[in-house]
Design a protein around this nucleic acid. Structure first.
Lengths: 238, 238
DNA sequence: ACCTGAACACCGTTCAAGT
DNA sequence: ACCTGAACACCGTTCAAGT
């Protein structure tokens, strides 16, 4: 009942994976040793291994050695299953211990979130169509809100500041350098070298640097620190 | 041959929509008045109207009053068609005139990008799987690079700064308040009111503000200004 | 009760055939 | 030459039937 892939777990994947929300399908007493938890683990592994496009109920059932329709005894629909995957993914987000200044605490939280999202790209893809609020994700929000409130931000400003940091981090996980960072870098070189110098002077001049930035992981921290600079400035201005 | 939906066009949609890259399928001499441009316009309209999930080659063909396979005479595959949609979408991004300080220029550029992305959510969805470099998108990059180089950033720092702003803006378009902002706000209220006060004190205390922030459009500008603050600070520090 | 195969309404795409 | 229907290998899900 454990994940095939080694992942940072904030707590062991077990009972909370099996817990069904009130309006979800019930978990039957399986004859095949099936359970919501086991199905979710298999779904997670399949998603991490082959991505959202390759995921289907039929393939998941094959993976589990079970008829396709058997899964529908545990999850009402593909949508409900994917919602549960998100919940489980959010529960695996590492929430760092609160240490140091409000800046340091927020910085650590967002770096942890970035790392978690990088390990589960499918969760990021799924987020597109659903709001980002599940009990797991909210533990992170709680820690962030505590840091911001301790810093002196009002309730109004703290929620907006957290949301800005949260969206930035999800955005970077989505559009930042990914699995194909090196391929992206090369495609960028090709695209930029085809540009006419007279209408794209600044870009042609910096073509090498621009291509490198496509694979540059430190851009995340640059943006994060800039956001924190801005918050600090607003805090000082009152 | 014009779009059914009124959109900000940086230049009229016409010939550039029909132009095929070197490795794309050729555009035949149609008997039905079909062309790459007409197919792209229909695809754009369908995507904007019903979203990526509802989009299919069969539905697009229906829309055009044509057999499904006819489209394959103009685009080799669904993938090639969607790539062309992205190119056309990127070409529609409004690039503001360069006016005022470097800060003001970058700010305007990113607000224009945000507006363009909001009008074509499907383009954002498509971006997930492809690198963000097409001639249309690069006009924006060129304008941004000019502002940053004028400000005094090195080639290296300017590319990283632009990428950070670009990713932030795409992230906001993806994860920020969308069509269902009000629904998200309400779902958030529900989720937060179910939290136990003792383990989520900061969040429960700010539940109302947190829910409001889900639909708050001004968070985009808060983050943008924070990022620009950070850049300014780095510029002054040298 | 838990599990399953057949069937339905969809996909993208190949391929041979129409005009 | 441009266009098309049938066919293939896939989907998610319903529904009636197996054990």
């Amino acid at each position: 009942v454990s994940n095939t892939k080694a992942t940072k777990l904030s707590r062991p994947a077990g009972r909370h994976l099996a817990a069904a929300p009130a309006d979800a399908a019930p978990a039957p007493d399986s004859r095949l040793g099936l359970s919501r938890a086991r199905i979710l683990d298999a779904a997670f592994a399949l998603l991490d291994r082959e991505g959202l496009d390759a995921f289907s109920m039929r393939r998941l059932a094959d993976e589990l050695g079970v008829a396709t329709m058997t899964i529908y005894g545990y999850f009402r629909s593909k949508d409900e299953l994917l919602d549960a995957v998100i919940d489980a993914g959010a529960a695996r987000i590492v929430v760092a211990e609160a240490r140091g200044s409000w800046r340091a605490r927020l910085r650590q939280l967002m770096l942890g979130l970035r790392d978690s999202l990088r390990e589960h790209p499918a969760v990021v893809e799924l987020r597109l169509e659903r709001p980002i609020i599940s009990p797991g994700a909210l533990r992170l929000t709680e820690a962030g809100m505590q840091a911001l409130r301790d810093a002196g931000f009002t309730k109004h400003d703290a929620t907006r500041a957290f949301r800005m940091l949260f969206i930035y981090t999800f955005g970077f996980a989505t559009f930042g350098p990914g699995r194909r960072a090196e391929a992206d870098r090369e495609q960028t070189i090709t695209a930029l070298s085809a540009l006419p110098t007279d209408s794209y002077p600044a870009l042609v001049e910096s073509a090498g640097e621009a291509a490198d930035s496509m694979a540059d992981e430190t851009v995340f921290e640059l943006g994060l620190d800039c956001l924190l600079d801005g918050l600090e400035r607003r805090l000082e201005a009152g």
